[in-house]
Design a protein around this nucleic acid. Structure first.
Length: 427
RNA sequence: GGAGAGAUGGCCGAGUUGGCUGAAGGCGGUCGCCUGCUAAGCGAUUAUACGGUGUCAAGCUGUAUCAUGGGUUCGAAUCCCAUUCUCUCCGCCA
């Protein structure tokens, strides 16, 4: 969330940034009113508490001296009742403020293009040339079913829509991609691997910004109060340091993690209903960074480059896009999307999203650092990016590496992870 | 799932006949002193949040915080209730 003081002193700027995001800028005025009320109330309440503390000390002194304190005690009792009323009001006001703060999105960075939707996104570079295969490339779900490596039909019987079985070399390919990406990031890019819980509590979901506003996007477990299936490893990995104060010397901290991701995809009805693009469960390797504020934008460039390296090594053509204010995620200050080429669709599709959240998540999750042993704690900057989405990578390979006979060549970088297998043969 | 024990400052650990205890003591950290040398010793210091004041700089000041949330009381780390978590034993189990 945003710093309350920043909203107080920079209300106009925050309002404008909300407008750029198509968000409700009225939240700012609501906040200012509640904040004003809170401080007024607080001053009165604290003054009365101060009086009560003094009176109580007097009671103690008098009793020790053997005097009768009944008069003071009676007076102070009334004071206590007044304080209780004020504090009840205060609690309501603070709840309201908290609610407002949790619903105000991050302020976009000044370099983010202003625009109302994804049409205003800016492509900043491309890598690789889409092949000209000379035949009609089958969409990956047709190719995968024909090769016997994907089974959507049985998945819908066993579970429902937007699930799949990976089978045989398909399962192996998915597993190889996970191992390949984790090795790349841990051995070459310096990330420390975590295998986190795949279930998190509501505090973690709030810390990274999934709650309270986007509850319907996640799967909540019944029976266990406030437990959610992870929608992304970002949640458990970022919350790894929740409520902690880190030494500046340890920064930046890099973590990577593989998890399955579970998303209800509410609101995506009718979109990408076929194939691996939009599943309720998908695999992903995630990169997470904790950085010094002054370095976080350099770290974002480096993080994005780390994700790009995956696609380069797999030789999958892609482009990098800066999301505009209208397309930017709720918690993010700046996001680069990596979009991989999908021949069957003849277009680039998102395969990774790399964001700098600045101190927005850190403030929610209370992740701080100290520059010096006695310095005041400051909020770290958090970043994360897909490194990259596994299912969409499998889809991209099934299409970009598809041969005329329907077989699929395994990218060279992946063969060591496939036991030397270089082709998924056509049946 | 059953029975029991516990949760105090960066860490360890006092404090449960309620009253200068934000909290003894120790360790660790920082600063200074001293010592003929990376040992030891001496002194000082050592939380966070939110308000007020201030050149929203230092400082000063108020309030709150002894797992969390309520309650009792003039006053609670200390009493009561609920919740969460941890540990031990039993059961179950990959």
């Amino acid at each position: 969330m945003l710093d309350a003081r920043r909203i107080r002193t920079d209300a106009g700027m925050v309002k404008n940034s909300l407008l750029d995001r198509n968000a409700d800028s009225g939240l700012v005025d609501k906040f200012l009113a509640a904040d004003e009320k809170r401080r007024k109330n607080l001053a009165v309440s604290e003054e009365k508490k101060g009086l009560r503390n003094k009176a109580s000390a007097n009671v103690a002194r008098m009793k020790k001296a053997g005097e009768d304190a009944a008069v003071i005690m009676e007076q102070t009792r009334a004071l206590g009742d007044e304080i209780k009323v004020l504090d009840d009001e205060l609690r309501d006001i603070e709840e309201e403020i908290q609610f407002i703060l949790l619903h105000i999105p991050n302020v976009p960075h000044e370099t983010v293009p202003v625009g109302k939707d994804e049409g205003a996104n800016e492509e900043i570079r491309r890598w690789g040339e889409p092949r000209e295969p000379g035949f009609l490339v089958k969409p990956h779900w047709e190719a995968g079913e024909a090769l016997g490596v994907l089974d959507f039909e049985r998945a819908s019987k066993v579970t429902g829509a937007r699930f799949t079985f990976y089978r045989g070399l398909g399962a192996r390919l998915e597993r190889a991609l996970i191992a390949f990406m984790l090795d790349l990031h841990t051995l070459k890019h310096g990330y420390e691997e975590l295998i986190p819980p795949f279930i998190v509590n509501q505090h973690s979901m709030t810390g990274t910004g999934q709650l309270p506003k986007f509850a319907e996007d996640s799967y909540r477990l019944e029976g266990s109060e406030g437990y959610y299936l992870v929608p992304t490893a970002e949640v458990p990995v970022t919350n790894f340091y929740r409520e902690e104060i880190l030494d500046a010397q340890r920064l930046p901290i890099y973590h990577c993690a593989y998890t399955p991701c579970f998303r209800s995809e509410a609101g995506a009805a009718g979109r990408d209903t076929r194939g691996l693009i939009r599943q309720h469960q998908f695999n992903k390797v995630e990169l997470v960074k904790f950085a010094l504020p002054e370095n976080s934008y350099d770290e974002l460039e480096a993080l994005t480059a780390n994700a790009e390296e995956v696609l380069k090594q797999l030789e999958l053509p892609y482009r990098v896009v800066t999301l505009s204010t209208g397309d930017l995620g709720f918690s993010s200050a700046k996001t680069y999307d990596l979009e991989v080429w999908l021949p069957s669709a003849g277009m680039y599709r998102e395969i990774s999203s790399c964001s700098n959240f600045e101190d927005y998540q850190a403030r929610r999750a209370n992740i701080r650092f100290r520059r010096e042993p006695k310095a005041k704690p400051e909020f770290v900057h958090t970043l994360n990016g897909s490194g990259v989405a596994i299912g969409r990578t499998t889809a991209a390979i099934l299409e970009n590496y598809q041969n005329a006979d329907g077989s699929v060549t395994i990218p060279a970088a992946l063969r060591p992870y496939m036991g030397g297998i270089d082709t998924i043969p056509a049946i």
